[in-house]
Design a protein around this nucleic acid. Structure first.
Lengths: 337, 337
DNA sequence: ATTGGCACTCAGGGTCCAGGAGTGCCAAGG
DNA sequence: CCTTGGCACTCCTGGACCCTGAGTGCCAAT
């Protein structure tokens, strides 16, 4: 159906359009790429490609531009992930060096990705569920309110305020703290829920209700907080792409944590770099954008996702290269710390 | 020099231009506001106002638009802060209700301000220096690395990783933790520096060097971290204003913590609502924007600043009202918790 | 000091036209 | 059957032109 040359033509069209942002015609194609056939031949090929839905012309007597389907075919079969240059590798290393706590790692990663790809970068905080409890701290705020601080082995610190049903004394807090740490230290967060369920037995009955309040907050933190945080950077890069009036829509979507979570969550494969093009993103304001994302995390299993977001007219090979490389480096850093 | 009517004309011009975004002419003025004089009279007044530098015409035979100087006079002498509507007050209360920990307070405040004013909201995290130490926690990560967690009475949690010069044992950590909490609990952060200076004496000499490392990180956290965080929200609102190509510049500036800190830091008076118009902002990308900001904090003294950023063509009275009201409410919330 | 009258200016929007890029189709050649 | 040169056709783009209307500045009269 599509012979080699037609595929080459499609690839050339995508590449040219991405770099020039202008519809590309048959003549320009034979000039810039060394297809040794005449423009007329290319025109025939393009007619077929258009019929199949891979390209369109914005108006009669203009060049062709790729459709979403065209980009899809391009990333699936016509392009190879572009490895980074040496300079870029060095940039990654220097950028991420010296970032120990989770916050700074995430922040630097966002900036790095945005700079590298000149797109909007999106980084999800590593999920809690895979890490283990390092320490739990209870700090009295008032006699009816505690600050619960949960520290994980990945260096993540979660804090929640606990509203108590009744007043609590220092000795009770100390006891509770001891029990919590004794039972939960070293446990994987995924297991915490079941352990907590058995805890009430180990607390003196007087303080049952207060303890219960603390336990339920722990559960919330561990289980319900699957709504992790997503950090965005490089939004300024959107102005280069010509969304014109859709820009408002996109910026709004980028401010909604929930939307971003759904966006990242959609893509299936955890480990590989996945690309979602245009309307493949079933998320309101972002149907005119493309997402290049992958999972990342310490070691082999991925804890969270990161990627870049840009116009469908995006340099996919480069973006995929950058995303893959950054994910690997960050994974390394996380594994070390 | 400028009689009452000329001032009224300037006020009318600012108000009309803000609401319509089009140069306003003499005829439109007498129609929309009930100045009972003829257009010709207004024209004379406008000629004077232009001569004085308060207004300009974009081209001959167009209406006038205010200059920065014109806006300045307007906010200083011609406008009153506009109180919020009942609905808006209720919105603030419901929006901020149920936010206990600092993170959620700040996040909600940003969203609230952005929604209320339809501008970009900017909120600085409450500064550490005024709060007191509630608790210090040391968590071993490896035998040469500690996680230091500092909890303040305002519910803020600071975390830093400490690289130790030599290995450290559990009992040393326990000792160090006890010393730190004994000496620093309840101290104001501003005083921590001097207290820490005396600490080395109270530590067994074997562990001097490790303890010193911990102390210096505490100092960093308390002193050097004056570079607080600033949170931005509502960037999508920028697309409504017609920065056209300056937009890129503005978005870039908004991503730079340092720039935002300088921006907020510039304005002098802590308690009052201050307005900085256009080039009064001596910050690179933001010379074409205006900032309406004020200090806020628990009780009477202000811990940090918040405000909104928008085009110089901004509804200042409304923005000032919203900023003032939100600052007060947030202050209340902070005082309670 | 205010006002009506009047001539003047100029941005914005419309039309018209020519140039050019790009196409589709066809007939001829490998 | 695929490829190619030729050719007519489409239609976007940019420039030139004109016209209209809003708004002004100035002046003489009140």
């Amino acid at each position: 159906m599509l012979d080699d040359r037609k595929l080459a033509v499609l690839r050339a069209i995508v590449e040219d359009f991405v770099s020039t942002n202008e519809p590309v015609g048959s003549k320009a194609l034979v000039d810039r790429h060394n297809l040794d056939v005449s423009p007329a031949t290319i025109r025939n090929d393009m007619a077929v490609l258009e019929e199949q839905g891979y390209i369109v012309q914005p108006h009669t007597s203009a060049g062709r531009i790729p459709t979403e389907q065209g980009y899809r075919l391009f990333v699936d079969r016509l392009s190879a992930v572009k490895p980074l240059s040496g300079a870029e590798r060095r940039a990654i290393e220097t950028f991420l060096a010296g970032a120990y706590d989770l916050d700074s790692i995430v922040m630097r990663t966002v900036r790095l990705l945005a700079q590298l790809t000149r797109q909007v970068a999106v980084v999800q905080y590593p999920s809690l569920t895979r890490s283990t409890v390092r320490h739990i701290e209870l700090v009295p705020l008032t006699d009816r309110r505690l600050l619960l601080v949960l520290i994980t082995d990945t260096g993540r610190v979660e804090q929640r305020v606990v509203e108590l049903p009744g007043p609590i004394g220092d000795e009770s807090i100390t006891q509770l703290r001891a029990v919590l740490n004794a039972c939960l230290d070293g446990r994987r967060l995924a297991d915490v829920a079941s352990v907590v369920a058995e805890l009430p037995d180990r607390v003196s009955s007087v303080e049952r209700s207060n303890a219960a309040a603390v336990f339920s907050v722990i559960l919330e933190t561990v289980v319900e907080r699957h709504e992790e945080r997503v950090v965005v950077g490089g939004a300024a890069n959107l102005t280069q792409a010509d969304f014109s009036r859709g820009l408002h829509e996109v910026l709004e979507a980028l401010e909604e944590q929930v939307v971003l979570m759904r966006l990242l969550g959609e893509s299936g494969d955890q480990a590989a770099v996945t690309v979602r093009i245009g309307s493949e993103n079933e998320v309101d304001g972002l149907r005119s954008t493309s997402l290049v994302a992958t999972g990342y995390g310490a070691g082999s299993q991925s804890l969270a996702r990161l990627g870049v977001l840009g116009p469908t007219r995006m340099d996919y090979p480069t973006a995929m290269g950058a995303v893959r490389a950054v994910a690997r480096y960050v994974g390394q850093i996380l594994a070390e710390s």
